[in-house]
Nucleic acid binder design. Structure first.
Lengths: 364, 364
DNA sequence: TTGTAAGCGTTATCAG
DNA sequence: CTGATAACGCTTACAA
């Protein structure tokens, strides 16, 4: 009763387990054990488990049965060691970040389709990126997928010299590193076009402070505002990337209530949500007084009592593209340094309204 | 300039890289390469890298230098294969779950302190638990840490028969499986005692529906209400584990407004937050009309505009305990089937108030 | 279709 | 302190 389901006891259908059963206890059974039990050679067991042609159906069945009886499991260590290729893709990500989780989730099926396995290596407060990457290198991953890597470009370039490296969600200009990220300027463009289509002109930008990518976003905002002939309205609000910083920004804005923008584009959803609640707490209505647009489309943005209009990052497309880059480098030895920009998408929800309190559409 | 930092070029301080440099390109350098460059035997290189005594300081330095010049990295596959023990702990978790992420984060330093490495294996929509566990078994992990496993107990028991298995956050009564979880009854007890201390008696329970553990919680609620002589107030509201289900529950409750409880203990924070906003949307004030207590202490609960009073799960303590179980089983061959209950903690925030609108404390 | 034998890059054992 | 020499469990030509 305590015996594992697939580990067939003496007396089970299989029958003649005797020595093997004893020798198998404690140690894991090997291919040799399976071969012995099936009455074939080790290599035949291998062919069966690799699912390559070269074993008769009847042998195949016998081997599989013997393996099941013994509770045999392939040993990845040995198999990877012997094989010329490990078919391993290393993924470095921040385990606490929801968008990173979305990416990892989306990567699994794509990698599997290309017959690669994923090796996850998390970065945390106590586990620096360098350690995470080192582990993957020791596991002999064939390519590295780095989600929002924090290390300096030169260090990442050194890594990329050893193994094909794909940076995700971080712009890096280096000939050895592939990059996959949401088209940053298009994010601002999408938000801006949407807001101007609602009649907004006085559109401010809630900044991401010193976060990676914030300066790019700021630059895009300035550039695109000018292009829309809205240069006179350019205004960058001091923000950050957390809800609390959003609240602070709202409080600061409320204090100088003389000149409110009619809409604000935020660095990300978290700061946007904080900003929105902060405005409301200060007596400024959202969306009636100010429209708010976020970025990321995190889970929270979709909650009915938040319902934040936002420009979303397509995690699935990003993941697909990142794996595709790795596969191109490995299986089609493409040249490194290519960049893929994933288009963002707009999600209209309840934090935006046409400028100046437009009346609800009349039914006529 | 394109050369990896640690891969010392010919002309670098090291000097005489010639054939090795060429042979190393393409293939990863091995211990043999390092040995050759340092002018020692493979086994000495091994002793140096294993950091065991048996190499003179000067040799040690030479080996390390040669390794650095070559950009040598240990090969985990070979090392794990040869070593009697892998010192690998497999962790199965839902990559999308914030509490699981907290656990994983907390596990890293604890495992490192016990000289174990963590192997992460995520379950997702497309990657079933069985696959995740299979992978870890093939990697020859020495123990499995399963966070909130979904498989039936009998199946998990089969796994536990092969390898020491620790279930986290799921109650399992099986002699082969260790369990670490937050003391479930204490959670309800903590919430209940806190609410009664505020004078509440009409305390309802917002249920977790068919989720694992919900029935335990329900049972504890009933039992402890009776123990407090509050049996007449027992009331289980149909809930769930998501914000949207919380909103629905609030709407349902508002419809039968004749008999509102004065406080509600919720299955988790997510459903609690939805419930709270749902109540407010229905014109029921929180906390003035109804006090709301959540469970988990997720990040969102602490946001200023949510500020949910909740009973928290101690992720760090749970992680510590789980690793400790594994280490006890592996290094001190403790007997399986032990259970550790981690005490929860109360976080008083803004969704609870003494019953019947107590006046703000007077300053005198 | 099946079996034989030689590694893959380490660690561990045992001599010098 | 140092260096040969077997394994570890598998894959992969190559032979039968």
């Amino acid at each position: 009763m305590l015996a594992p389901r697939n580990l067939g006891q003496a007396g089970d259908r299989g029958g003649k387990v005797t020595m093997e059963e004893i020798s198998a206890s404690g140690k894991n059974p090997t291919m040799a054990d399976v071969a012995a039990r099936a009455g074939v050679s080790r290599s035949l067991v291998s062919t069966v488990f690799r699912e390559v042609p070269g074993a008769s159906p009847v042998t195949r069945a016998r081997v599989l049965q013997a393996a099941a009886d013994l509770g045999y499991q392939l040993d990845n260590r040995a198999r990877m060691l012997r094989r010329s290729r490990t078919r391993l893709l290393g993924v470095v990500f921040q385990v606490q970040d929801a968008f990173h989780s979305d990416l990892v989730e989306a990567m699994y099926p794509v990698a599997a389709a290309a017959e690669y396995d994923l090796v996850l290596s998390a970065t945390t407060e106590t586990r620096p990126e360098v350690d995470a990457i080192d582990g993957l290198l020791r596991d002999r991953c064939e390519a590295l997928l780095l989600v929002a890597p924090q290390q300096p470009e030169s260090w990442l370039a050194d890594v990329a010299e050893r193994v094909p490296t794909i940076a995700i969600s971080r712009r890096i200009a280096h000939a050895a590193i592939d990059v996959v990220m949401t088209a940053d300027e298009e994010v601002v463009d999408t938000a801006l076009k949407y807001l101007t289509s609602l009649g907004h002109r006085n559109i401010a930008h809630l900044d991401g402070a010193k976060i990676h990518g914030a300066s790019d976003r700021r630059r895009s905002y300035r550039k695109l505002m000018k292009r829309q002939n809205l240069g006179e309205f350019i205004r960058v609000l001091e923000g950050g990337n957390t809800e609390v910083q959003g609240i602070r920004a709202a409080e600061a804005l409320a204090r100088e209530q003389d000149s409110l923008p009619s809409a604000v584009i935020c660095y990300n959803d978290r700061v946007a949500v904080g900003f929105m609640f902060g405005l409301r707490a200060a007596g400024i209505r959202v969306p009636e007084d100010i429209s708010v647009v976020g970025y990321d489309d995190v889970h929270m943005a979709a909650l009915p009592f938040i319902s934040l209009t936002t420009v979303g990052q397509d995690a699935a497309a990003t993941a697909r593209s990142a794996i595709a880059h790795a596969v191109r480098r490995l299986d089609k030895d493409a040249t490194p340094g290519e960049m893929t920009l994933v288009p963002p998408y707009l999600v209209e929800r309840s934090t935006t309204l046409p400028v100046r309190q437009a009346p609800a559409p009349l039914s006529r």
